[in-house]
C-alpha cells in the first residue's frame, strides 16, 4: 500500500493515517513511515500520546482488528502461551513460598479488573492516578516516568495561586495535584513540580 506523502517530516500532518496508526491498523511499510514522521514531529507525537492515553482509559475505542507489529510482538501465541503459563505458575508458587508474611496484601485474591502494575504499585506504597504511577520519594509524590538524568523541561509551580492558574489552563493535571502539596508529574513533554 502506498503511503500518502503527507507523512514526510516537513509536510502537513496526515491525521487520517495517525488515527489508523493509533488503532494499529496499518501494514508494516505504512507503520514504519508513520513512526519515522512522528519521531521527528512533536505536534503529531503529542497528538499520538493523547490518543494512546484515551484508548488506554477507554475514552476512545480499541479497534477490533490489527495486524501484528513485527519486532516487538511475539507472533505465535500457540507456541509460547503454554510455556509462559507453566513458567508463571512455577514463579507464582515460588513467590508464595518466598514472600515475607508482613506484606499487607498477601493472601488477598487479586481484585477483578486490577492490573498487575496496580497490584505491584499498591504493595510498594505507590499510587496510580489517571493511569500514571506515583511513588513517595523524599516527601514528594513523583511520577514514575520522571527521569532526572535524561530530563525534560521543568516548570515549578509554587503556592495556591500559581497552582490554580495552571490548573485553569491544563485541567487534566488536577487529579495529580490531589495527591498532595508536593507532586512531580510529567505531562505533555514537560515536568510540572508542584510545591506548597
Amino acid at each position: 500500500m502506498k503511503l500518502s506523502n503527507q507523512m514526510m517530516p516537513d509536510q502537513p500532518h496526515d491525521l487520517d493515517l495517525l488515527a489508523a496508526f493509533a488503532e494499529g491498523r496499518l501494514d508494516e511499510p505504512d507503520r514504519q513511515r508513520v513512526i519515522t514522521h512522528v519521531a521527528e514531529c512533536v505536534e503529531c507525537r503529542r497528538t499520538l500520546a493523547h490518543l494512546g492515553r484515551a484508548i488506554a482509559d477507554g475514552s476512545l475505542p480499541r479497534a477490533a482488528k490489527r495486524p501484528a507489529a513485527p519486532g516487538i510482538q511475539w507472533s505465535n501465541a500457540r507456541v509460547w502461551l503454554p510455556i509462559a503459563a507453566s513458567v508463571l505458575v512455577g514463579t507464582f508458587a515460588w513467590f508464595q513460598l518466598a514472600t515475607s508474611p508482613d506484606v499487607s496484601t498477601e493472601g488477598e485474591p487479586p481484585a477483578a479488573g486490577v492490573s498487575e502494575e496496580e497490584l505491584l504499585t499498591k504493595r510498594s506504597g505507590g499510587r496510580i492516578v489517571a493511569g500514571k504511577t506515583f511513588r513517595m520519594t523524599s516527601g514528594e509524590w513523583v511520577d514514575a516516568a520522571f527521569d532526572p538524568s535524561l530530563g525534560v523541561p521543568t516548570v515549578v509551580i509554587r503556592g495556591a495561586d500559581e497552582r490554580s492558574a495552571l490548573l485553569a489552563r491544563i485541567p487534566e493535571l488536577t487529579p495529580f495535584t490531589e495527591l498532595g502539596d508536593r507532586v512531580v508529574v510529567v505531562w505533555d513533554g514537560t515536568v510540572y513540580r508542584f510545591e506548597p
Binding site: R45, R46, A49, A56, I72, W187
Partner: peptide, 18 residues
C-alpha cells in the same frame, strides 16, 4: 513517548500495540 510525553507502560503498550 515515555520520557517526553510521560506515557505509562500500559499506555505505551496500547499506543505501540505491544
Amino acid at each position: 513517548l515515555y520520557y517526553e510525553q510521560g506515557l505509562t507502560l500500559d499506555q505505551l503498550s496500547v499506543t505501540l500495540h505491544a
